[in-house]
Amino acid sequence: MDKLTGPEGRQIAFCRTAGEGPPVVFLGGFRSDMSGTKAVHLEAWARRQGRAFLRFDYSGHGESSGRFEDGAIGDWYEDALAALDLLGEPAVLVGSSMGGWISCLITREHPDRVAGLVTIAAAPDFTEDGYWASFDIAQRETLATQGVVHVPSQYGEAYPITRRLIEEGRERFVLRSPLRFDVPVRMLQGTDDPDVSVETALRLLGHAEGPDIRLTLVKGADHRFSRPENLPVIEAAIEEVLASLAA
């Protein structure tokens, strides 16, 4: 593991595997880290393929510096761009959950840095459509007066959802403004995902414009998409994007 100095001096932890390009970059989800099942599995896949690969932790996540509750979508987007600076060539982004949102942002705002895109249970605009939309009057008042609401999570301790996370997220929406992809895109979505609905995946598919965008629904897959039977589906999506680029 190494670290790079990102925006505002944030120390971003990363693991980089040398190999042939285009490099594959894994962008993790909200409060996850680069030691997760998918990231580690794909690194091993890349080694077998002789493929350049990068995984990293956003600030406030994993081994990177900072507190999680101080971060927002824009910060983590900037961290991802700093990680991409290591590569020097367009990459295939593999974005999981929040990483799907961030990878869509990067592909829209910096198309020259993206060779292809794979999303896994992408959660675009989730700060608004997920958290804010679900808050009752009391929670919204608490957010306004105290700046944070703690929301229970099935993945561990409660998540601190800050006013800054909600407000800054509104500057990063991808479902409320044009979203053009001129690279091959493969979207993966499980039908048993309790956090991101199939309707959200269909909304993203319908909203995005581009010549080569496909959505695969996987019956029974959950949000983590990391069961042994799910991981080869991710590999196949990446390989399909790489084959499209080679052609």
Results as ranks from 00 to 15, higher is better:
residue 5 T to P: 06
residue 6 G to E: 06
residue 18 A to P: 05
residue 21 G to H: 10
residue 24 V to D: 02
residue 24 V to S: 03
residue 25 V to I: 14
residue 32 S to D: 02
residue 40 V to A: 11
residue 43 E to M: 12
residue 49 Q to K: 15
residue 51 R to H: 02
residue 52 A to F: 06
residue 53 F to C: 04
residue 58 Y to T: 08
residue 62 G to H: 00
residue 62 G to L: 05
residue 64 S to W: 03
residue 65 S to I: 03
residue 68 F to E: 09
residue 69 E to T: 06
residue 69 E to H: 10
residue 87 L to S: 00
residue 88 G to P: 01
residue 91 A to N: 06
residue 91 A to K: 00
residue 97 S to Y: 08
residue 102 I to N: 04
residue 103 S to P: 10
residue 106 I to M: 01
residue 108 R to T: 02
residue 115 A to T: 05
residue 115 A to K: 04
residue 121 A to R: 06
residue 122 A to Q: 05
residue 127 T to D: 03
residue 129 D to M: 10
residue 131 Y to V: 05
residue 141 E to F: 01
residue 142 T to L: 15
residue 144 A to C: 03
residue 146 Q to G: 09
residue 148 V to W: 10
residue 149 V to E: 10
residue 158 A to N: 10
residue 164 R to S: 13
residue 164 R to Q: 15
residue 164 R to E: 11
residue 169 G to F: 12
residue 170 R to C: 02
residue 170 R to Y: 05
residue 170 R to P: 06
residue 180 R to N: 01
residue 181 F to H: 13
residue 183 V to R: 13
residue 186 R to P: 04
residue 189 Q to W: 09
residue 194 P to L: 11
residue 198 V to A: 14
residue 199 E to V: 12
residue 203 R to S: 11
residue 205 L to V: 11
residue 211 P to F: 04
residue 214 R to E: 15
residue 215 L to Q: 10
residue 233 V to T: 13
residue 236 A to P: 00
residue 243 A to G: 04
